[in-house]
Design a protein around this nucleic acid. Structure first.
Length: 665
RNA sequence: GCCAGCUUAGCUCAGCGGUAGAGCAACGGUUUUGUAAACCGUGGGUCGUCGGUUCAAUCCCGACAGCUGGCUCCA
């Protein structure tokens, strides 16, 4: 996998903003209600803070929001007042009245109100499209609709404001930040209450919470650093089990394993093209330059600064250009200098991706077409300096272990390799009982060839056709997203939804027909010429951090036997010696078979021991009392499933071993 | 990085301008038990850090850090 394992949060950047009038009119009933609720919110805010400037207020997947600019800073303490005003408005039962205005009328209206954001939004409406307004009571808004008939259609008990947030105007961080109020609305109070309950249930599944409860991982911002996860012993088990699964699967699929260091010289990332574009996301370099190299570098950087100054003056057309340089030729020279400086030894970067190292492994030996496909796999550790506000539990971290591999192949081999990768995904998803996922197929935009996308129209077409065919043949449900491909080729991201409704990219599968060439990778073909291989980046299990974060929520911490940090606990009724000896024998036998088993042989009442084991989410509890000892039985109890009855000891042990071996759910 | 909120015992939380509390957990005893919690006791805190206001600050103010919710970013 290259660099795109991180999430693609859509957040509240509502699709609604981009929807056409026609799509909007088809909005379902609930969205319509919520949209009206956003207007009611704005009505209330204007009553309480008449100087508020309005932006927009669309419905979202589970509610609505409205963006405001005002000097008062909203805080949750304001919600009671605002909600009260909103309820009042619903009781006033105002009619939502639609009207069409001309562009001039609309402009005049917003100018008179000083609503500068609305004026800008007005400019977005294409010439010829109707400019519609909705009015309820004293509140008038530029709005395509649709709405409910009257504010009274919104039940006062069905409204709830949720949180204040901020959002850049038009989602651009150069624009002013507006204050956003999120809320939700339902047909009635009961629906709302059910939703609130569901939210609370979902919170209990949050991987951060369960991770702490179960002792899976920890963060130590003070001594280790933010976004740098520590795997505790029980979380380490999850890591080990996933790696074991990956290693077995990849071995059987013909992968070979490699190991690479966690850093590399600047030259590596100059060559790959990741620097300077990706530098922001990388930890700053470590400088180990020799004295003469340092001087050389300083000279180069001075020269570069001079050139940039020159470029600026050219842009301003202040001074004539003495050297006859164009902005393009200056840029070229700047690039050359940066490359030269970067090629000096002694500046090291922590790697943000594994592909360059793997490319150098490809380059380490002469390659023949007979060596292809070459599948290099590694659980590679990558470091990315994600912005502080983007860190999020295990899901978005600064150090991560990727289930990475790079497959080098010929164009003829590509389809089979790509199909095999896809099948591996599906195999994994089956193991984890993952049935809600969506493959997102990102393609290029021909208009941006040579800019955002490498200028290889034929290869783009070929690979995209091939990927599309594989998806269709495999009967996979996918969406195609133009203009979202990586610069070096099309890709498939796997979107999953965690139990708490969060969507993110958990795995990625990318085609790369550009970067191997930058590293001069070649193989000797049948015809005795050197050719550049295609490369597939793939990471079906994403990173340990995110994948385990996802699994924690997916299973709500109730892992299947093969994954469970503590698989079995043997509980005795009391600590009488024959009983304990019998129990110890079972523990020993299981442990000798590498089962993660513990014993609880103390004097506590069995109820207490069971409560402890249940709380710890031990998968299988083996309860042993006098009756079991006599019959040579054990009584099985499964976590969250209760007692399963007594069965012969050897049969139970064999069953446990089989379930683990088969990785049964 | 930006806006807002939060930070009190290992965890969940209460509290207040006059030097801090509960439940669970931990620890020490007692309890010999049939499927989610037996009883008694003990310890545990620089109230995130630094600075300011005050006779006095965990509480008020400021800065910083971390976390959370968003936004931005994720080539």
């Amino acid at each position: 996998m290259n660099t795109n394992e991180q999430p693609q949060y859509e957040g509240a950047k509502s699709e609604v903003e981009r929807k056409t009038l026609d799509q909007r009119s088809q909005m379902d009933e609930l969205s319509r209600l919520r949209h009206s609720c956003a207007h009611i919110l704005a009505t209330a805010v204007l009553r309480l803070w008449p100087d508020a400037l309005l932006d927009i207020g669309p419905p979202t997947d589970d509610g609505f929001y409205y963006d405001f600019e005002l000097t008062h800073r909203f805080s949750p303490d304001d919600f009671a007042r605002i909600e009260e005003e909103m309820r009042k408005i619903t009781k006033e039962n105002q009619v939502f009245e639609k009207s069409i205005k001309t562009r001039d009328e609309a402009r005049a209206y917003f100018e008179s109100k000083g609503q500068k954001f609305k004026l800008e939004r007005l400019g977005d409406i294409p010439e010829g499209e109707a400019i519609s307004f909705y009015q309820n009571g004293e509140f008038v808004d530029l709005c395509a609709g649709p709405h409910v008939m009257r504010t009274g259609n919104v039940k006062p008990g069905g409204i709830k404001l949720l949180r204040v947030a901020s959002a850049y105007f038009r989602g651009n961080e150069k624009n002013p930040q507006l204050q956003r109020i999120y809320g939700t609305a339902f047909k009635n109070k009961e629906d709302l209450e059910n939703w609130v309950k569901l939210q609370e249930e979902a919170k209990k599944r949050d991987h951060r919470r369960i991770g702490a409860e179960m002792g899976l991982f920890a963060f130590d911002a003070e001594y280790v650093g933010p976004g740098l996860a520590l795997w505790l012993p029980k979380g380490g088990v999850l890591v080990e089990e996933l790696e074991k699964l990956a290693k077995e699967t990849e071995f059987q699929a013909g992968y070979v394993r490699v190991r690479t260091p966690h850093l590399a010289k600047e030259k590596m990332y100059r060559t790959s093209g990741h620097l300077p574009y990706y530098a922001e996301s990388m930890f700053p370099p470590m400088e180990m330059l020799e004295e003469d190299e340092r001087k050389k570098r300083e000279q180069l950087l001075e020269k570069r600064a001079d050139l940039l100054k020159l470029a600026e003056s050219l842009g301003n057309a202040i001074s004539p250009n003495p050297a006859g340089m164009t902005p393009e030729s200056i840029q070229e020279e700047v690039n050359r200098i940066e490359t030269e400086a970067g090629f000096l030894g002694g500046r090291y970067y922590l790697k943000a991706m594994n592909c360059p190292h793997h490319h150098r492994i490809f380059a380490a030996e002469p390659r023949s077409y007979r060596d292809l496909p070459l599948r290099l796999a590694e659980y590679g550790t990558c470091y990315r300096y994600e912005q502080s506000g983007e860190l999020f539990g295990l899901m978005r971290v600064r150090a991560m272990n990727m289930n990475d591999a790079h497959i080098y192949c010929t164009a003829e081999q590509f389809a089979d390799e790509f199909r095999a990768v896809n099948e591996m995904y599906l195999k994994y998803f089956k193991i984890f009982g993952l049935d809600r996922y969506q493959m997102r197929f990102s393609t290029h935009d021909p208009a941006r060839l040579g800019q955002k996308f490498v200028n290889e129209p034929e290869l783009w077409k070929q690979t995209e056709d091939m990927v599309r065919r594989v998806l269709i043949e495999s009967g996979i449900n996918y969406v195609e997203v133009p203009n979202e491909a990586a610069f070096y080729g099309p890709k498939i991201d796997v979107q999953v939804w965690s139990a708490i409704g969060r969507e993110f990219t958990i795995a990625t599968n990318q085609v790369d027909f550009a970067v191997p060439a930058r590293f001069g990778l070649t193989y000797r073909d049948r015809d005795n010429t050197d050719k550049t291989p295609l490369c597939i980046h793939r990471a079906p299990l994403g990173t340990h951090e995110r994948f385990i974060g996802f699994l924690i929520e997916h299973y709500a911490g109730n892992f299947p036997l093969w994954l469970a940090p503590e698989q079995v606990r043997v509980l005795t009724l009391g600590e009488k010696e024959p009983l304990v000896n019998y129990a110890k024998g079972i523990v020993q036998e299981l442990r000798s078979q590498f089962v993660r088993v513990e014993g609880d042989f103390g004097t506590n009442p069995i109820k207490a021991k069971i409560a402890d084991a249940e709380k710890a989410r031990v998968h299988t509890m083996l309860v042993i009392g006098g009756r079991d000892l006599e019959a040579g039985h054990v009584s099985v109890r499964l976590h969250s499933k209760g007692p399963q009855g007594a069965r012969p000891r050897d049969e139970v042990i064999a069953g446990i071993l089989a379930d683990i071996r088969e990785r049964r759910a």
